[in-house]
Nucleic acid binder design. Structure first.
Lengths: 150, 150
DNA sequence: ATCGCAACTGCAATCAGTTGCACAAGCGGA
DNA sequence: TCCGCTTGTGCAACTGATTGCAGTTGCGAT
């Protein structure tokens, strides 16, 4: 079964109309190694379909997100990061100092999700989190605890 | 010690210049019951100081966030929510169905923070998280597990 | 009190993302 | 194959947030 056939099946299952624009957005996302911004998706789709509008890209991404086929995450870069939902969720740690992005295994959020479900009957969307903070290299030595908060 | 004196002390400690605009932004935040949007802060400050510009509000909020005096959170409403940092962090669960906002005790994120520090030497900023998902009332009965992801 | 410097601000332009509207197109039913 | 209806799209305007620039101002040093 080819990728395009998969895309068709995905849209059918989601009861969304098959349009050339959507098929190309799906293709861009599914073939990507990692995250894409809306602008990157737009560029790729436009290469093959010059009539497409950026608002269509956003609408398609929003629809896919609603269908839980795509994650949308603010990675702190200024625009949102989109990614085809993977079988096992993963997350990122993002250092506010050096801006390095580390991948974080789902196990760390999995227990949080279990706790929220058990204690509060809340089904959290924990597909793709970005957690900001500071890595060891960027923390001041002997960080003073005088500041408010942590 | 009055609130204004506190604000002066806060800015001095942060080595930021004392400007009328900043003192008013601080005042708005510290007197707020809960979160405020940038537009709300702007309206309050402008009532007393008509010359202020919205870009100054954003710059001040960014500076305060950098100093960890204010939290900035995307609560999904369309604009960002700002709040004076409290002694004990708190978080929110936000239902994607009914848009109800529940307050979440820090204990749920505290362990996550501890794990990240211990295992990955990463000091996470876990002051004010918004976790999206679905409450019991909005989940379809017997939610099918066929969809990708959770 | 004055001066000079660096930080700060207002303004206008810009950007990423959203939305209303009118027209186009996908597709189910006949 | 055709038709009609509903969904989808392109366009332009809009919104929340950001940024470059020139002028203003807070404040430390004298």
């Amino acid at each position: 079964m080819s990728c395009d056939t998969d895309s068709v099946a995905v849209l059918r299952r989601a009861e969304m109309k098959l349009t050339p624009q959507r098929l190309m957005v799906l293709s861009a996302l599914r073939h990507a190694q990692g995250h894409l911004t809306a602008a990157e998706i737009f560029e790729q789709v436009r290469a093959a379909y010059p009539y497409v509008d950026i608002s269509t890209i956003y609408r398609t991404l929003t629809a896919l997100r609603t269908m839980r086929l795509v994650t949308e995450t603010d990675m702190g870069s200024g625009d949102l990061a989109y990614e085809w939902v993977q079988e096992r969720p993963h997350h990122h740690l993002i250092c506010s100092g050096c801006h390095r992005v580390l991948e974080l295994d789902h196990g760390y959020l999995e227990r949080l999700g279990d706790d929220l479900a058990r204690d509060l009957d809340f089904e959290a969307d924990l597909h793709h989190f970005a957690i900001f903070g500071r890595c060891a290299a960027c923390r001041p030595a002997a960080a003073p605890a005088a500041s408010p908060g942590l």
